[in-house]
Each structure stands twice: as C-alpha cells, then as structure tokens.
Design a binder for these strands. Sequence first.
DNA 1: CGGCCGTTTGAGCCACATCAACCGGGGTGG
DNA 2: CCACCCCGGTTGATGTGGCTCAAACGGCCG
Lengths: 329, 329
Amino acid sequence: MSYGLTIKNRTPDELRQLASERRELAHPKQRRTKALLLSEARLLEHYADLRSWVERTRPDDSGDDLLGERSTIQSAPPSEPHDLAPFLTTLSLRMALPVADQHALLTAAQLPRRLAKGESVIAEGEHLSAFLLLCSGAAHAVRTLENGGEQVSAFYVSGDALNPGDLALGRSRTSIRTLTPAIVIAVSIRELGTLMERRPAIARGLWRETAFQAAIQREWLAGLGRKSAEARLAHFLCEVACRLQIGGQDGETFELPLTQRELADILGLSCVHVNRVLQQLRHRKLIDLDRGLLTIRNREALYRTAEFDPAYLKILEPPHSREEADGSR
Amino acid sequence: MSYGLTIKNRTPDELRQLASERRELAHPKQRRTKALLLSEARLLEHYADLRSWVERTRPDDSGDDLLGERSTIQSAPPSEPHDLAPFLTTLSLRMALPVADQHALLTAAQLPRRLAKGESVIAEGEHLSAFLLLCSGAAHAVRTLENGGEQVSAFYVSGDALNPGDLALGRSRTSIRTLTPAIVIAVSIRELGTLMERRPAIARGLWRETAFQAAIQREWLAGLGRKSAEARLAHFLCEVACRLQIGGQDGETFELPLTQRELADILGLSCVHVNRVLQQLRHRKLIDLDRGLLTIRNREALYRTAEFDPAYLKILEPPHSREEADGSR
DNA sequence: CGGCCGTTTGAGCCACATCAACCGGGGTGG
DNA sequence: CCACCCCGGTTGATGTGGCTCAAACGGCCG
C-alpha cells in the first residue's frame, strides 16, 4: 500500500534506477532473497515501461486512427528484460484497440500486482471485481471435480486476458492460478463500465478476446474428445509455441513452466502417461524438454502428428476497421 | 426471393391466415409433402409473431428502460405452436438487451430462413457474413478431423446465437449443421456494425452470449477430460434440460433430436458405448429415451451422477445494470 | 416386400489408468 | 557441511474403460 503510493510518484527513470539497485543487491544473496529482489526489480521495470509508454503515446490521443494499430507496436519501448511487447500485441492485434483506447484502458488500470508462483488469482466461484491482464509469467484456469480430479480449461501466457468471459457473466466456476511468478494488471469493473460507455472499441475488444479464447477451447475440445494422447500433447506444444511467437517471443525454444502433473490436467491424462508420451516425442526427435525448457526440433513433423493448423490463432482484421477513435470527450 | 417480397408486405394476421391454410392443406397429404407444408406454416407463423412483437413494442422505444427486461417477456404474444419465448429470453436475459435494443436488432434482421434437417448453416472455414440466431429447431457445431472423426463443440437449441464468437474473429473452424428443420434469423455483419456503434448494449450483449457459450464449453472440457462416460452423458442431458427450461420449455420431458452417433460425437465416445451407457441410465431409472423423446425420471439422482450444478447456466444480473438505452439518435 | 438407417448385443483388444518403486536434485534443518 | 526429505521425473507390472469389429434386429419409407 504505502509502497504503492511511493512508486506512483516516481518518474519512469527513477523507477528503472530503483530496479537496477535491486538487481545489484540481488547478486550476492541466497537463492530465496535473490528471487524476491529480482522479481521486485521486474515489477518496477514493468511499471516504468508502462508509464513511459503511456506518456509517450498520450499526445496522439485522438489524432491518428488508421495507422494506429501498427504504430503501436513500433512505439513500444525496447526495454530488454521486461518486454511490453506481448502485452501490447494483445491489446492492438487481438483486441483490435486503437492506440487511444489502449491508452485509456491502461491509464484506468491499478498498479501492477506481483504474484508468487502457485498463487490463486481468482478463486472458484468468487465474485469478480476487475478485469485482469497477465503482463508476465504464466497461469492456468482450473476446474476441480468432486473426486479430486482437476481439469485445466485454459493456459495463459504474457499478454493474455485472464478472465474476459467470466467478466461478462459476473462469476466463474474455475479458479485461476499462477504457474510462475507473475505480474498482473487490473482494471476495476466499475472503471471498465464507464470506459466501455465512452469507448465502444473496448467492449468490442473484450468480446474479441473472449472469442479468441473460446476458439482455443474448441481446439482443446476436439483434442480431448477425438485425438490420441500423443496428438493432444503435440498440439498443446504447438499452440503454446505459436502463441508465444505471436507475442514476440522465440517460438523454437522457450520456457514451459509446467510439471508433468499440470500437463496431465491440461490434456486429460495421467501424469505417468504424459511422461511416456513425452519420451515418445523426444525419441522421435520432435522435441526436447528438459527442466522446463522446451525446444522444438522438428516443427514440421510436430505439426503433422498434432494435426495442428495455426490458422485459428491468427486473427483476421476486425470486420469493420474503418473505426473512429471518437476521442475521450 | 420473390416469395420473400410477397410475404414482407402482409400483415401478421394475413400471414397467420396463410399459415393455417397450409396446415389444412397438409392434412391429407403424404408424409413428405405434409412435413414441407407444416414447416412452411411454422415459418409463416414465426414471422407473423415476430412482426406483431416488433409492432407492439415499437412505441416503447426510448421510453421505459429499467423495467424493460421483464416487461419484454410478458409482452410476447401467446402464440401457441410457435413460441417466441426462448428467443426473447435469450435476448433479454442472456444478452441483457433493453427492449429498445432488442427491437433494433430484430428490425435489422433479414427474413427468417427455413433450413431442412441436416443442412449446413455455416461451412468450415467459411467467411462469415451475418449474425445468426436460431429461432426454432436444434443445431450443433462440428469439427471434423483428418481421420474422419468428428467432435461436436456446441449444441444449440431455440434461442441460442449460432456464432457469436466466430463473428468477432471473422471465421470459424467448425461447421454448423441443423439437427432438425430449423428457422434462423440473420443480421448481416454490416448492419450489425452500424447497430453496435449506436447501441453499445448490443456489443455487450454479443460479448455476454459469447461468454455464456464459452462457459458451457468449459464444462464440456471438464467432462471430456476427467469424467466417466456415464457422468458425461448424464451431464449433457442435465444441461440440455436446464437450457430448455430456462427458455420456457418443459425440462422433464422433451425432444432430444440426436442419434446415438451424434451423442457420441458430443461426448467423445463411440456410438456403441453411448448405447450401453444409455441403457445403464435407463436401468437405473434415471431417464427414459425413446425415439428421440427424453424423460427425466429422477432428476436428483441424475444430477448427482453427472456432478451437475446448474449455476453456470443461470446468468447473474449484468454487472452495471443502471444502463441508459441512450436512444437511437 | 426390400433396403436403409439407427439401435442393440457380443467378443476381443488396446490405450491409458493405477499402483508401486526408484531416482536425482535442490532446499532445509541439524 | 552433511544428512535428510520432498517433489518431480522415470520405469515396470497389472487392471480396465471404452474402442473396434461384426452381426442381428426393428421401424420407416419407397
């Protein structure tokens, strides 16, 4: 709290300064403390980036509209460790928000929240009070059954909205948990409501994001219902690779912060079987997975065994893109 | 076409007259022709009802807003064979549209289209050009895999929007097919675009409907991933019963226009196994299913074996219901 | 009456679950 | 610093839910 008030008054550069101090401090410490400090540094940097971005784009507010979407990405600050890119990609591409609306949305957001690994972002059945955007890290939505079994219904990476659909309905039957330390931005539902009244693009954006995630769910349905364990696993890996790539990250080699147990709950398998199928894929030289680092060795073949077609992840131009940003007045 | 132009100029009462003529004609005919005539009658009646409803509610346009939602349902015409109720329930409850917006949406709609059983409404990958609302009949969204297997990702009954999510994304990987003769209303994407600009409630409504269907999909995911065949089947039956009931139909005994093959594709099972599981449920006196007519004999027990909780089908009040309809100007 | 589609029933099999044990690394406590 | 432990991954043995193949049945339509 008081911490929040403090950093809110700093300039982005001051924030970056604070961040690097923490990084230096972190060096000699033990693992635990080190991780904490680093995570704090990341949070500060992220916030700094965000503030810079908002300040930089403020002038354009109701100005350029047509080139808005493209120019967004290029104007993102080239900050190394903590990239805003995936995040802005989602806003501008998937949600098709003009810069002015991105700006409005981010300005309305509360301070980024830092979450530890395994923390629960939304509990099952909880009353929803804010729109959540995952800025860094990974998370998943879990549904727990009476017999103790769990089924994951969504996997989120940086840039994804955590609960666009539940927000429209007011509650959720899944609980959302982080899989890594994560940074989340929240826009309270009240703010969002007033925003949407003035900025129809934001409502449409939430609709698009909801639809996007529903499309992914449909693929999962097809997999769970009709595909072999191997195909399901391969498909999931393809999907994550693609989504990361679209977010601007490396799609060949990346962190996959999931235990085999968690993979099993995504794929509807037992963790023992996940293990065996993973090895199958390794032996066939399609992938490598070691200590959470996944490498795709033969994308072609992986796509084929997964029956994967990335089309559903690529977004078409919004149906009516001759949009006016219609100011904030 | 020319047919369409003709009926467009008739009054609702004339339309009803035409419909009952067809019903009389149908009596002595053979099965095939009879079915055609009856279906034509239903279409005419539906259109008549719709027109009456629109005319009746026109005066209220930008008038009452707060009591709008409730008053809608009551003002629906009590037409016997062809009920508008499920349909208006969706618009007003699930999409939370004030009457004025319902009216605007329906006025923008093209003439209802009649579809035969098994007809394809949207083909896989087709370019979407309209928002579709199922007024009567049933349909499902199918994803076909390379090995010939099919997985159903959605089941639609009267009142459901057929493609709210795909509409936001511009294309779909599933094809939507009717399961019975059906009547569909379409609003072209162009009209919808201009509508949404003036009426934010419509955009929000589409978002809500998308989210609603996504919530159902998540339940299916949990079932496919983690439940036994029996539980899955039971759950599906509970879901349909509940949805029909919410739409105003009988939730104890109703038509389930699905072959065992189609049930299998919904549940991710083989049709042989669906048969056996159905018999299990029959022997346990939980249900009866004969010739497409389903009867729930022990709802309590059925819910328990399905691990079914209808909460996810009930919609909460819209998060910010202190909405103004803000006219059409 | 004959063909077709959907349902029913049986026999055998396979993908995946379950149970159980072991391993290896990293964090913890003594 | 070492011993321990816990968690996640790995491996084997065995069980089973649901699949496949195959054939008979029954109603509906031509």
